[in-house]
């Protein structure tokens, strides 16, 4: 399996009837295993909507969206939930659970899957945190960490389940230039090691150079690849 995401002729619109607002028009895009693809474009170009459809968080009806060989168009919630468990998410805000330590937050990804003991979950979560350079912050809660550190925890959380795909939405938006660049470089390095594909939405032009491919979206149409 070399193609992990395969989108063909995807159309999507908000609203209905006279108020129908087309957001995505005839999108065709495929992403191979281990490939890093950036989607850029102005606000309202539909790039975040595209990401939520790929992530199985929004139901699309027209075209074809195959993620890890599962068809998302007109699919059941169950199919999407099972695919979501194989995807790592990184959000604009870190969205960590405030009441849990960094280690416990990362473990949340592993608690969905069977067959691991508590100790194995702890070990793997700790490894993931060490890989993002937070080996000395395992038992810190989100309130005690800086913005860059929080984003690195969420990178660890996304990667610890060894997903085939990582979806990231503006991961650098709440970070300054240096910690933002460090975060995405780290993401790139770890993803390349594990052959994980990354689909990253951003309009931060400072990080374009990490991509294998940049897709520019404007008014719901792919402008250049």
């Amino acid at each position: 399996m070399s193609t992990v995401i395969d989108v063909e002729h995807l159309n999507f619109s908000f609203g209905s009837g006279a108020l129908t607002q087309p957001v995505l028009k005839d999108i065709t895009l495929s992403i191979r295993k281990g490939e890093i693809v950036l989607i850029t474009g102005p606000s309202g170009s539909g790039k975040t909507t595209f990401l939520t459809i790929i992530g199985g968080l929004r139901q699309a009806f027209h075209g074809s969206v195959k993620v890890l060989d599962q068809q998302f168009i007109n699919s059941s919630e169950q199919v999407k939930v099972s695919v979501r468990q194989q995807i790592g998410y990184i959000f604009q805000q870190h969205n960590l659970l405030k009441s849990l330590t960094a280690l416990q937050n990362v473990s949340m990804t592993l608690e969905m899957s069977n067959g691991l003991t508590e100790q194995q979950r702890r070990d793997r979560s700790a490894e993931a945190l060490i890989a993002v350079g937070l080996g000395d912050r395992l038992d810190y809660k989100p309130g005690q960490l800086s913005g860059g550190q929080l984003q690195r925890v969420s990178i660890a959380r996304a990667l610890v389940g060894q997903p085939k795909i990582i979806l990231a939405d503006e991961p650098t938006a709440s970070l300054d230039k240096q910690s933002g660049y460090e975060a995405v470089s780290l993401l790139k390095r770890l993803a390349k090691e594990s052959q994980t594909a990354i689909l990253l939405v951003t309009h931060d032009y400072r990080i374009l150079d990490i991509a294998d491919r940049v897709v520019e979206l404007e008014d719901g149409v792919i402008k250049s690849v």
Partner: peptide, 11 residues
């Protein structure tokens, strides 16, 4: 937000 995040992750 935390619950929505967990839902996105597949909970």
């Amino acid at each position: 937000n935390e619950f929505a995040t967990l839902k996105a992750m597949g909970y």
